[in-house]
Design a protein around this nucleic acid. Structure first.
Ligand SMILES: [Mn+2]
Ligand SMILES: [Mn+2]
Ligand SMILES: [Zn+2]
Ligand SMILES: [Zn+2]
Lengths: 141, 141
DNA sequence: CTCCTAAATAGTATCTATTATCAATTGCTA
DNA sequence: TAGCAATTGATAATAGATACTATTTAGGAG
């Protein structure tokens, strides 16, 4: 946690109570949270904090790499503490994003893209479907 | 073009002037268009058509597979006539989506996902960066 | 061909997610 | 500890898309 605060300082940003609390909430969660979820938890700790502040700081934290943003193809973006580059299996039933320990930007695909002359900035790979727990629930009807 | 109209009928949907024009616009374009762009072109042909109708019909056409929707990570969705499953190199400079002739959902990655017990519904792979034409423009400053 | 009805439409209101604005406050540094 | 840029809370504004509703229409039955 203090490491994260140092990271803020190192980038020239101030350590505010709001930022402490946002980082606390993120560090206490084991899954991706929407801004609304983060805001709710933040307000349980300190009710006066504005949702605008939550948005602002998540953008900032994502920019400097402290958090990573997960853009699903519908609904709001979700955030978690950055745990390095990864991709996810996103469950349409329960919404959980299961980490996939492998990245498609390597081997043959990487070579094809490089050879095309395109200058790669970033990439996204995301699989949607149903996790094992949700498969039973979903199969029935 | 008549093939596309038949497809609509075959699914039990009516062939309306609005739908004809939307399909005409899509078939005359060689790239992904936003709803706004499609709406503008549609209104050049028939000014009375509502933007709501454009949205409604693009959703419908996507649902029955006549068009494919491209969700970028920011900005509005973009559409084109469905040319089969594919992925894109999306240029941050000019916005063009260059088709990538290869899919990461195969080989080792596919196997890993299958073995995880996750039931795959769909997948997205998208690379962002700068196309060759835009690289020069972008490098300078 | 004409009639009928479910489907579709135009116009507009509403919604969700996010950013912009701005006056008031506050963390940091000298 | 004073000063000031950075940050904040409150709220307005925006973008993109969907919901609603009265009206029109495509296309099948007769
Ligand atoms: Mn990757
Ligand atoms: Mn694919
Ligand atoms: Zn699930
Ligand atoms: Zn380009």
């Amino acid at each position: 946690m203090t490491g994260l605060l140092n990271e803020l300082s190192a980038h020239g940003y101030k350590i505010t109570p709001q930022r402490r609390i946002i980082l606390q909430v993120l560090s206490e969660s084991c899954r991706h949270l929407s801004v609304e979820e983060i805001g709710d938890k933040v307000k349980q700790i300190e009710p006066g904090i504005s949702v605008a502040t939550v948005y602002r700081n998540l953008n900032l934290l994502a920019e400097i790499g402290i958090v990573s943003r997960l853009d699903l193809h519908e609904g709001p973006a979700r955030y978690e503490l950055n745990q390095g580059h990864d991709h996810h299996l996103v469950c349409l039933g329960c919404g959980h994003a299961i980490k996939l320990g492998v990245c498609p930007m390597q081997g043959e695909i990487k070579k094809i893209i490089e050879e095309s002359g395109f200058e790669v900035n970033s990439h996204h790979f995301e699989v949607t479907g149903y996790c094992q727990e949700c498969q039973t629930r979903h199969r029935k009807p």
